[in-house]
């Protein structure tokens, strides 16, 4: 038996010939909606599924910076974003197809976990560029403000039919109550696509952050991160 969690996903395959334009992608819906549906099949609550033009940057930006995250990203326990991403100046950026209000979301304007969010998947490129302690801390020390775990890639990820089950496989493990960090590394790391995966946990103490990294499942939903004093991460490369 697992605790029920609220799930939201956003994804973009198709861009337009305007200022937000990026190269089109093919499998982001497979990833995000695959995750969404698998979580639903395990009895979890499907709250929002916004694709293409319906995915908005304001859904991720905190109201302190004029965004609406407390009604979307931070109004679910588990959020899965799948699209283009980039990391420069120690800030994670994610891309949107429409300018609502910006084409790019920036992690320096996120307050992850201020309300409800526990787990955030960035199924896109460059959650981090490398695994030096200073870089991981510089990118994620600020935005993680109550969120338990962030999942992503070191450098670039892939958009390919070779790994289009990534979201559904991770959703199956997560929805069953399996250990989240291990499940992400298992499905996101790829020997054949050269995708390197990382999971980053927060905690008030070192032991708490490590415990979350090693053991947290969705059943830890109500075990709050009272203060992000430590980060503990795990990656395969």
């Amino acid at each position: 038996m697992t605790l029920q969690v609220r799930v939201g996903v956003e994804w973009i395959n198709t861009f337009h010939n305007d200022s937000c334009n990026q190269n089109n992608l093919s499998y982001r819906d497979d990833h995000a909606v695959g995750f969404y549906n698998e979580m639903g099949s395990h009895g979890h609550s499907k709250i929002f599924n916004f694709g293409n033009d319906n995915a908005w940057e304001t859904d991720f930006r905190h109201p302190d910076h004029g965004g609406d995250s407390l009604n979307w990203l931070d109004n679910v326990h588990f959020c899965y974003y799948s699209d283009h991403g980039g990391n420069w100046g120690n800030v994670m950026h994610i891309c949107f197809a429409v300018q609502h209000q910006h084409c790019l979301g920036s992690s320096d304007k996120w307050r992850l976990g201020r309300k409800m969010l526990k787990w955030f998947v960035l199924d896109c490129c460059q959650a981090v560029l490398n695994t030096s302690k200073d870089h991981v801390l510089a990118v994620w020390g600020g935005p993680m403000q109550g969120v338990h775990l962030v999942f992503g890639f070191i450098g670039n990820g892939s958009d390919s039919w070779w790994n289009d089950d990534l979201g559904s496989d991770f959703g199956d493990d997560a929805g069953r109550g399996n250990k989240l960090a291990n499940a992400w590394l298992d499905h996101a790391y790829s020997f054949w696509l050269n995708d390197d995966a990382i999971a980053i946990a927060a905690g008030a103490s070192q032991s708490e952050a490590i415990n979350r990294r090693e053991n947290e499942s969705i059943n830890w939903r109500d075990y709050a991160v009272t203060s992000t004093n430590w980060l503990a991460w795990k990656w395969r490369s």
């Binding site: 590394l185 020997f191 992000t228 004093n229 991460w233 395969r236 490369s237």
Partner: peptide, 21 residues
């Protein structure tokens, strides 16, 4: 052999930047 990978763990304290890998 295609590839040899390694699973790393790390942690860092935000205030002191001390950690391990």
């Amino acid at each position: 052999v295609l590839k040899v990978s390694r699973l790393h763990v790390g942690s860092i304290e935000l205030a002191t930047r001390k950690g391990d890998e």
